[in-house]
């Protein structure tokens, strides 16, 4: 579904991604782990088209994305939940969900889709007309995910979804990722919570200093304390 090959990216003059290659097959949960500053967020941003300068290749569903603007990547079925949720101030929960549909052909089923989403995210169902930023961090994260999946993307990329969220909600969220996978959605996950991420993932890539340094099945990595110690401990 997604083939990233020799991806390079720059912030100004600093070369922050060096020849990153990642593959995600349809229906997989793939997780990207590594310390802060390893290049995980930049990798997701480059795939989504939010970096000013990138080189290499990002092929999604057989199409080269590298020179497409972000909004056309969304149109091809790519969704992205950035770090820190980015719930829009001044909008209600319902309006945030509608925002997930404004550019999608699914928009004509808006009412139905909001109803369906409310069933999957019961915490949001009770708060549809509340101003979204007044909800707890965990609920806002749920909303950010709901907003990204409401238009039924083929692949969703999530950046640190568990950050700053109560453990009980984190468990609920990870259950949700498994449910999404069961529905056929592919997931590319960046996570600090390594153990938890590896439990639900199929495969994992470990990044360090802007490059991929290790890849294996999630189960193998879960047992490989040496790699985890070397690249993921703080």
């Amino acid at each position: 579904m997604l083939q990233v090959a020799n991806l390079n990216a720059w912030y100004g003059a600093s070369h922050v991604l060096q020849d990153v290659s990642i593959e995600v097959a349809k229906g997989e949960i793939v997780c990207l782990i590594g310390r802060n500053g390893a290049g995980k967020t930049t990798t997701l941003k480059s795939i989504m088209g939010l970096m000013d300068r990138t080189r290499g290749s990002v092929i999604f569903k057989g199409k080269e994305l590298l020179n497409l603007p972000a909004h056309l990547r969304f149109a091809l079925g790519l969704a992205y939940v950035p770090e820190e949720r980015r719930i829009v101030q001044g909008l209600s929960v319902r309006e945030n969900l509608r925002l997930g549909l404004v550019a999608s052909p699914e928009k004509r089923h808006e009412l139905q889709l909001i109803e369906d989403t409310a069933k999957i995210f019961p915490r949001l169902a009770e708060r549809l007309d509340q101003e979204a930023v007044t909800m707890s961090g965990g609920e806002q994260q749920m909303l950010a995910i709901a907003r990204a999946v409401i238009a039924k993307p083929d692949l969703i990329m999530l950046d640190e979804p568990s950050e700053g969220i109560m453990p009980v909600l984190v468990d609920e969220m990870f259950e949700l990722f498994l449910a999404m996978k069961a529905q056929g959605t592919t997931v590319l996950l960046v996570e600090q919570n390594v153990e938890l991420a590896l439990e639900i993932a199929d495969r994992a890539y470990v990044m360090d200093q802007g490059a991929v340094v290790h890849q294996s099945s999630a189960r193998e990595l879960l047992a490989d304390d040496e790699v985890k110690e070397r690249y993921c401990s703080v």
Binding site: M48, L50, P69, A70, H71, F74, A75, A79, Y80, P82, R86, V88, Q89, G90, L91, E95, L99, G100, V102, A103, S104, R147, A148, A151
Partner: peptide, 14 residues
């Protein structure tokens, strides 16, 4: 209304 607050999120939503 959303784009005035956060143009990037509006872009990634297509």
């Amino acid at each position: 209304r959303a784009g005035a607050r956060d143009p990037q999120i509006v872009r990634v939503l297509g």
